Amino acid sequence: MDSGSSRLRMNNPAGTMVAVVGPSGAGKDSLIHIAMAHFARQACVHFVQRVITRPADAGGEQHLGVSPVEFEAMREQGAFAVDWDAHGLSYGIPASVHEKLALGHLVIANGSRSALPNWAKAFPSLLVINVTASPEVLAERLVARGRESREEILERLKRGSLKVEGGYDVVDVDNSGALADAGAKLIATLEAVLARRAGT
């Protein structure tokens, strides 16, 4: 990371970084899209486009697709505020988010539970939105993707935890039911962050 980005990171106590995490099938991308539409006209709210080592037209979230070689070059150049590897891919949050945080803004990004220790080091003010759903609902959604059987998925879910471990500031959003209900909770949570910021 270059010296300018380092100075920004050390001097951005005013803004809040929000990491939206959760297991596959929980609906993180859908909820983020709802929040993006709601906050579209608020200049102090920013949704991050991640850099990922997969094609930009691969589906799912809108991201900047780069090759593994390009990603490594960006990492060495200090282009990321935080980056991590998962499921055979590399993910990066652009270092430019520090500029928004230094202005006291709210920044939201799709994250990863396994990478949260790195996020906590990068962002002094970090809020984790843990999107969950019941194992049965997760299984049904994942079965629809056609990659595993329902039995395989349920067995895998039993071995894992839907909780966020560690001393983070966490808000759980249950997306087992109507998407609109979970979206409303996410929006209310972000609105509360903005209200606290306005009151400081």
Rank of each mutant, 00 (worst) to 15 (best):
A26F: 04
G183Y: 01
I32T: 01
N12M: 11
E152L: 09
L101W: 07
L194H: 02
S176G: 14
R159P: 12
L157I: 10
L127G: 01
F80W: 03
A198K: 14
V173N: 01
H105K: 07
L127T: 03
L116G: 02
A133H: 06
K158Y: 02
V51N: 04
I153G: 08
G199N: 05
E140I: 15
M1Q: 08
S149A: 11
G160R: 11
N110R: 10
K163P: 00
S112M: 11
L190S: 03
W119K: 04
T132A: 06
D85F: 08
G88N: 03
A192L: 07
I108W: 00
L162F: 01
R50C: 06
V45T: 12
P23T: 15
N175R: 00
A86E: 10
E165Q: 08
E140W: 12
V173K: 00
L157R: 03
I52S: 01
V173C: 00
E61N: 06
I32P: 05
K100S: 06
R41D: 11
E70Y: 09
A184V: 03
V66D: 04
K28C: 00
A19C: 03
E152I: 13
A79V: 08
D83P: 11
M17L: 06
I52K: 00
V173E: 00
L194T: 11
L103P: 09
R7D: 09
D2F: 06
P135I: 05
T189F: 05
